[in-house]
Design a protein around this nucleic acid. Sequence first.
DNA 1: ACCGTTGTTTTGAATTACTCAAAACAAGAT
DNA 2: ATCTTGTTTTGAGTAATTCAAAACAACGGT
Lengths: 159, 159
Amino acid sequence: MTIPESSYGADMRPAVADAGLLEDGIRSAGLKVTVPRLAVLRALTDRPHATADALFGAVRADLPGTSLQAVYGVLASFTTAGIVRKIEPAGSPALFERRVGDNHHHIVCTRCGVVHDVDCAVGHSPCLTPVDALGFDVRAAEVIYWGLCAQCQSETALP
Amino acid sequence: MTIPESSYGADMRPAVADAGLLEDGIRSAGLKVTVPRLAVLRALTDRPHATADALFGAVRADLPGTSLQAVYGVLASFTTAGIVRKIEPAGSPALFERRVGDNHHHIVCTRCGVVHDVDCAVGHSPCLTPVDALGFDVRAAEVIYWGLCAQCQSETALP
DNA sequence: ACCGTTGTTTTGAATTACTCAAAACAAGAT
DNA sequence: ATCTTGTTTTGAGTAATTCAAAACAACGGT
């Protein structure tokens, strides 16, 4: 399934990120600033829910020498450093996003695969507090809503 | 009938009556009853959250001729027929469970990977309404809680 | 500006989990 | 018992990701 790009949420970033801001983001996470890292972070800014492969394609357009393994490595270091979040919806390769630290959730179209952010429902949805945590020390709740996006609803309704 | 994982173990089940129940479950789902299907369903009854590979190992103990592809095929037909549910927690191969038709969720230990069922806090389908559905026709909500299980908490606390 | 340490990227290969396809086979209807 | 249909085996293939070693680059110290 090819995953279309989704629109930005309310906390919209500029489509073309300032190079200095990207650099600061990487450096302040305790990571060395490198050309592939800047390129991946820029590509991810333009594609809020992208696969490693999609980012590789985007990065390779500007930096043809970049390897796919480098993209995986960059994403792993970003994810570990906490400046990128990795999500793994069932049936899809992993997706990466820059929006971190707010425990937001996702809504995925079962037909076209488009992914949108959904704000955290803590305090509103009863499902975010398990009735019985079974002795677990619960650290995170991950919610994925599945359904048909508006466009796929209208396309599916056609004859 | 679906039974929570903690309710009974393998040796508490009446073996003879069980075979008939498994058979009925398969047949009433509109599927042919075959030896590999019975074996997979029995193995899954004993292992409420099992991977295809774990089920393959269990089935092969009794039926050495069974192929891994057969297990995948059986699980796919069961899942399509609605008598088995497939869950895909991040970082894990797919898990299968017999408990279907309710809206329960899962809690996964980040250290040892153990999975338990968690009921929804409120009745039937409270999880189907994200704060803002963005025009989606939401059909399902999947919730995974991540944390440390009781045993891993105590083991982690050791020197 | 150079150097050395440390971390990063490239190169190449391997692995895991899963899927596909065709032939052999078995279940259940007649 | 036979026929049709669906299932399983056999064998191969793929997607996504990971591993390992050598080449390379960043950045703090000099």
